[in-house]
Write a protein that binds this DNA or RNA. Sequence first.
DNA 1: GAGTTTCATAATAGCGCTACGATCATATCT
DNA 2: AGATATGATCGTAGCGCTATTATGAAACTC
Lengths: 352, 352
Amino acid sequence: MAEQRSIRKRRKIQGVTMMDVARAAGVSPSTVSLFLRRPEAVSAAAGEAVQAAIRQLNYVPNLIAGGLAAASSRVVGVIVPSVRNAFFAETVAALQRDLGRARLQMLLGHSEYDPQTEEDLVRATLSWAPAAIVLTGLGHAEATRAMLKAAAIPVVQIWELGRTQPIDAAVGFHHDQVGAAAARHLVARGCRALVYLSGRTHQDRRAAQRAAGFLAAARELGVPVRHLGHPAPATVEQGGILFAQLLAEAPAVQPLGIGCSNDLLALGVLFEAQRRGRRIPEEFAVIGFGDMGFAASSNPALSTIRPAGDLIGSEAARLIVARLATPELAAPERREAGIIDTGFSVMHRQST
Amino acid sequence: MAEQRSIRKRRKIQGVTMMDVARAAGVSPSTVSLFLRRPEAVSAAAGEAVQAAIRQLNYVPNLIAGGLAAASSRVVGVIVPSVRNAFFAETVAALQRDLGRARLQMLLGHSEYDPQTEEDLVRATLSWAPAAIVLTGLGHAEATRAMLKAAAIPVVQIWELGRTQPIDAAVGFHHDQVGAAAARHLVARGCRALVYLSGRTHQDRRAAQRAAGFLAAARELGVPVRHLGHPAPATVEQGGILFAQLLAEAPAVQPLGIGCSNDLLALGVLFEAQRRGRRIPEEFAVIGFGDMGFAASSNPALSTIRPAGDLIGSEAARLIVARLATPELAAPERREAGIIDTGFSVMHRQST
DNA sequence: GAGTTTCATAATAGCGCTACGATCATATCT
DNA sequence: AGATATGATCGTAGCGCTATTATGAAACTC
């Protein structure tokens, strides 16, 4: 009796494979694959047979296998500081929408404003051989930059433009200009003295840039200005606390112009002023940043600076799709083309 | 001269492969793989050699290949209606944090409250052979349920508990109980008539459940109640509009208890009341839902109902990790163990 | 009508990794 | 000592798919 060779147990992984579809449709697996990728390259008859088989068997293609074979994974890694932050949520939503249209999926990570966490996330994301990566800001650990350069995939840095050269492409705006615009707006509204309220500037370099821009513009205009910051995140509660602190110092000049590093802080100022019976904008003019949902409807309606969070997402998606289609677009000599300033607009409402 | 066989061009995919690491470390690829997955199963000497080689070559493992070989991809698909919604943002953040600790990555999608979009997202996500899937709510297209059952992976449905049987596991709370709690709270605070304000109840079934719970509880308490809804999303602006509409009908009873399907709506009511000089809570008592950042700091501070968004995320992550470790946990007869009620708490503040 | 082009389809060789069994050295038992 | 158990390491066969080449049939050339 012949010794039975030890038969390796086949690990069943997927219910319905491309081979099953091919059998059902009476064609070869190659044809099924081709149909899935370029339907127009397959005859109408074969295409319909494959289509029918796919539907009948409820076939779900395995993109992992596809990605391995094709060396292109149709995922885009997106790393933002925080999804809880409404700014980034808007951009992430636009990104997902527009990437989805190009049949790209989003692998999301949030770094909690920590460069080391970001580096780990980039490493983990690169393990998925992503088609492209979206990062927030221009400031990153050296190792992060090195990994991304080595990966040789499109990299789009969002929400910040500045002197730092982007790794590949960038979509955003100049936060110092936002701060300057806020200062100029307050002065134009008659403020003879300014204060900038912010939170977490040590971690959030974009908030720090807004503060710096505000201070610089005020000085340029010859208006006394100071910066009241706090390491805690910029929340509504924090806005109230900072305003109370400001009142304690009994500012003499009226109206005092208050720039806030975001709308939450500004809303906190509004509430605290109300509680203390201080009038806005007569005694204090307040301008925020973000144009969050409540800004237009608050009482008084909040003047603020509106970034184009949505546009940032869709432009980033557009750049990625374009680069994947024509990789030469990412060539260093075309660098300028990959820097998109989405700008911002000053929304003048009742609080200034 | 011998004919040169046509050499197939090797598509170079990855810079440094496991094989390169193995060579550099003087071990076999199997040992490298084993070290990466279970370092304790490898001798200290071999482990150190591999570690050194990895660092020296800056090796990034290819999880796509790993996923294909192992039939387990270490990604978890997460599908929420919207990341712009602060509720889900909090849960998503917790999920990412806790899944990350188990070295699982998150593939995020948002359905924009559309079942068809959700179905497409589930299909796309399943293409990644995810280790598990997290869905929002218990209501899904039949095809979606079928796909997920067929996929035979852990499925955790979050943010809703109810009569509908979950596909596998569920973490959330009963929205009708939230509505009932709001109604009871208002009545306890002396309201003799109630109104429920909501937006988008036709799409957001959880908002609809809160409304239904509110109405039912009010009727049970014998208090007149009505529902003022609108198809637009529940925003601050919408809150103001609905409150103005309410005032136009000149309600006689004071205080009138106003339940809002979320805090944004409630904030809009607060602002509009202020603008019109109506007193809260004397004339109108207002309670929201969500305990969003501003609720504790608004003027008056907003009474609201706080769901455990963070806890939902971490419990969902815990369930997934447990199920991946011991698949038997997902057996139908253990179904109960996979239903976790994270509850909610009534935050009594100044607005009621 | 033999040669050439065009098009649709099929066969084949991996993509980089993991699971599994096999192998080999060493420790522990009768 | 010889048998057996234990532990570390290695060799191999795919995972399901795509890119590429090969094949065959039909549509053109001159």
